[in-house]
Design a protein around this nucleic acid. Sequence first.
DNA 1: CAGAATCCTGCTCGATACTG
DNA 2: CAGTATCGAGCAGGATTCTG
Lengths: 128, 128
Amino acid sequence: MSGYEHTCMIRGDGGRTIRTILDRICDKWTLLVVATLDRKRLRFTDLQRQIPGVSQRMLTRTLRNLERDGLVSRTVYAEVPLRVEYALTGTGQSLIPPALALAEWAIKHIPDIEASRAAYEERADSAE
Amino acid sequence: MSGYEHTCMIRGDGGRTIRTILDRICDKWTLLVVATLDRKRLRFTDLQRQIPGVSQRMLTRTLRNLERDGLVSRTVYAEVPLRVEYALTGTGQSLIPPALALAEWAIKHIPDIEASRAAYEERADSAE
DNA sequence: CAGAATCCTGCTCGATACTG
DNA sequence: CAGTATCGAGCAGGATTCTG
């Protein structure tokens, strides 16, 4: 990528496009669920086990939203006990690369950010 | 990009890395401010003019957070009237490419998402 | 011009309890 | 097993007012 071209993609329509996608992935669990489903079909309980800290309610809500937006498919097997499997759709899979790009950025720059933040706090503290 | 490798970058530490970055960019205005400052130094009022809908309070808060995290630099000129210029730092600039990747994804897939969502709503409605 | 301070509202998230 | 229902805390974000 040559970089630095057309940020108009972000600013273009007054931010509506970028806001649409942020609204979709920026809650606490969505990206984690998507990453966990990468090339895997998983049941509800397995997902919950593999995502530390997520509550039933939040996992359900996240999955419903993803299903509604067509990023995740939900398959119910009429067995006893009940079995439900979740998997990424093609659209869902396509979200992985840009998400990884973001994660790479985070890993590379979080130390700097943390340092800058610490310095800022200190300045604020000593100013009082 | 070969894609589909190591989503462990996202899930690795129980989502702390990805959450750190999401916490930084997922509010309503941050990415818009960053995109607007791409290769430009701008004053407070110019920023506000170029970002439709942002309030003074929100623009101030967003800029302070970005400054604190070292993504944006703030320069005060002791003139009358006061002049303050904002610009991206190197770290700030480096956020543009992954943000663009996300925007590209959004532009490509929002139609599908919107369609899926509409279909889902309709099913829910007719079920009642 | 570039903000700081204050008030208020809605929504996200989590804990808890219950169900087919 | 795979959810739904309900309640409550907390915070993000907006409108408004005031200042160096």
